[in-house]
Write a protein that binds this DNA or RNA. Structure first.
Lengths: 125, 125
DNA sequence: TTGACATATTCCGATATAGGAATGTATTGT
DNA sequence: ACAATACATTCCTATATCGGAATATGTCAA
């Protein structure tokens, strides 16, 4: 099996840096393709292809106006990513406490074992 | 050019669903490979390969204990993703307001233009 | 109608997977 | 030393890109 399609979900679509740039650029504003090309310095076909991917997973919305097509980021579609990452928030807070505790222990001259973080540790001493 | 390496950054590493499952499973707890295999129902080599990718981008930490290797999610490495998605938070709040406003307008019997959301809109009336 | 303008799509080639099977490596127990 | 246990790595194949070049599609203007 190969890697999953970029259009399979928002996680895959957002893995590409240029697509993240586009999403950031189109956050809260509607812009025609030409301006995205100019602003980000990419080739026009490249931008169109990225927009196609983003549209397929619902990360951008499109609307026609004359001969141009206006795109805008659909922030709602980013929410699931935000919520998934948020489930780890309490753990990085924990880790900060550990780092802080270790730093303080070091400052007090106590030899800090690199794995004191795990209370279940039972290596034969 | 092909797609960027899964080890190029956390965004690419996290694009794979199984790797997200592993990260969730290892959040806040240290577990040997065998338990990950059993818990997620994947093949052992597959888990090892995913762990390798996660380790290369710093998403998991590893420690040896006898013949087993204990892995644990390094939540800090997920933080950049959380922060990137957080930059869109205000926009999905905006969108909710718009949806709400449109719904209320509809309730009042006002014809709601689908694109009144953009105040800069100057279509020839 | 003809042409210019704005985007989209197709074709191409190089590369990076992800899974399955088989094999390699390190550590423990007898 | 030898077998068993716990993981990691390699080899193989099918597939999905991503960028660049060329081309197609659709809309407006004269």
């Amino acid at each position: 099996m190969a890697r999953a399609s970029t259009t399979s979900d928002a996680f895959n679509a957002v893995a590409e840096p240029r697509r993240r740039e586009i999403l950031t650029y189109l956050a809260g504003v509607e812009r025609p393709v030409g301006e995205i090309v100019a602003a980000l310095g990419l080739e026009q076909p490249s931008v169109s292809k990225h927009l196609r991917v983003l549209r397929d997973v619902g990360l951008v919305r499109m609307r026609c106006q004359g001969r141009q097509k206006l795109y805008r980021t659909n922030a709602e579609a980013i929410r699931p990513l935000h919520e998934w990452t948020a489930t780890f928030e309490r753990y990085w807070q924990h880790q900060l406490h550990h780092v802080k505790a270790r730093a303080e222990a070091m400052a007090r001259g106590v030899a800090a074992d690199p794995h004191t973080s795990d209370p279940n540790l039972k290596e034969k001493a």
